[in-house]
Design a protein around this nucleic acid. Structure first.
Lengths: 206, 206
DNA sequence: AAATATATTTAGGAGTTCTAAGATTCGCTG
DNA sequence: CAGCGAATCTTAGAACTCCTAAATATATTT
């Protein structure tokens, strides 16, 4: 009997999506290890630099880093200590809470961080192969999946429009700009949906 | 001046898609470590069991495992040796090539492998939140991205319709079943596109 | 038969990951 | 205001991942 890959599916679309996401996960991981060898930075160290570059202007707490990267404080502490040894970040006690530390980039660290950001360009190249419409649709699917993973507690809080207090979905008739952001006080469309917005206001913060 | 997340984008859709994919990668990784603790299997060990379960009925080569998981043969060799110690897999010299080894699951390993397959169910749950149309569209985007990563050499060969010798795209007028698979000799649609087909026939195999 | 190529293993070293236990510091309560 | 519990971070120990480089055994080619 011939194997028929089509017989059993329809119900297993989700399974194939999972396989695809897993493959991309493998690609990201193996690439970051290869970059580690050439740059002298391990994957976690690189992720920390990128994180500080993105939102660390005022210094990040160790626990914040651990949470964003979904590792334990112990792991984050190790990696940060190594980065301090390499002269890429600084650790100071936080002014407001002397249990905590504020982690910032040094000048050298800043430069390294910018290099790290180029690590993943190969994915951007692949994504750019999609048409603009496909990219918007794909992003929307991704956002729905992430939101669900968040609700299940399997992923740290993402700063996405769809879970932000500033977000007012579908308040306009204009199909290109149906949503409104209260923070910037402007209408916007699906192609503008954020995944990691600096102005995010959490529904959980009381 | 207020930060405006919308000003700079349109060109940076791909960047946001990358952030989203990265977040899912983090979720997959951290989840597999958590499962590692409860099951006694490390992430790589679990992946190997899952791989053997999916396509290991005749025994897999070590190099094949290393390639699928994008690790070096050395890393794969270590992990397999540990699995042998745990009694989950068997190593035999391959009949046709006595340099190579054939790795197969033991009965206990088979049972463990089935448990491992449940590790990622939380992602399936999230994907199932999408409508059928969204899932098909998302899968197509994923396939295009994977194919591109493959062409760039950043991901191992995936066994996808779109790069398979048996695949004849868009040969029928029927919009629901436009494609044809020469192997099963049947028409099929976008919702049936495979990502890891056992009947894959590579354009590279000469 | 000798040289080259392929498949796997071993050894060594850096890094990640976890849990568990300790040191500080904060914030609340009595 | 003293003290207790909670939060923040560090350290220690163990298992595992990951790499490169070198060794071993078998195929393939010349």
């Amino acid at each position: 009997m011939i194997h028929d890959p089509f017989l059993t599916d329809g119900n297993d679309l989700a399974g194939r999506v999972l396989i695809g996401l897993t493959k991309i996960g493998i690609a990201l991981k193996s690439q970051s290890w290869q970059d580690a060898n050439t740059s002298g930075l391990s994957p976690t160290q690189g992720q920390i630099l990128a994180l500080l570059h993105a939102k660390g202007s005022d210094g990040l707490r160790l626990s914040a880093i651990a949470h964003e990267l979904s590792v334990t404080p112990a792991t984050a502490s190790d990696a940060v200590a190594t980065l301090v040894d390499k002269g890429l970040v600084l650790k100071d006690r936080a002014a407001d809470d002397r249990r905590a530390i504020a982690i910032t980039l040094t000048d050298v660290g800043q430069q390294q961080a910018e290099k790290v950001l180029g690590w993943s360009d190969f994915v951007k190249v692949a994504v750019d192969e999609l048409s603009a419409e496909e990219q918007v649709g794909f992003l929307q699917g991704l956002i729905k999946i992430i939101r669900n993973l968040q609700q299940q507690g399997h992923i740290p809080i993402a700063h996405m429009c769809v879970t932000c207090q500033h977000f007012r979905p579908n308040v306009y008739d204009n199909p290109d700009y149906p949503h409104h952001c209260n923070f910037v006080d402007a209408p916007f469309g699906n192609q503008h949906l954020q995944v990691d917005c600096p102005d995010y206001y959490s529904p959980l913060s009381t």
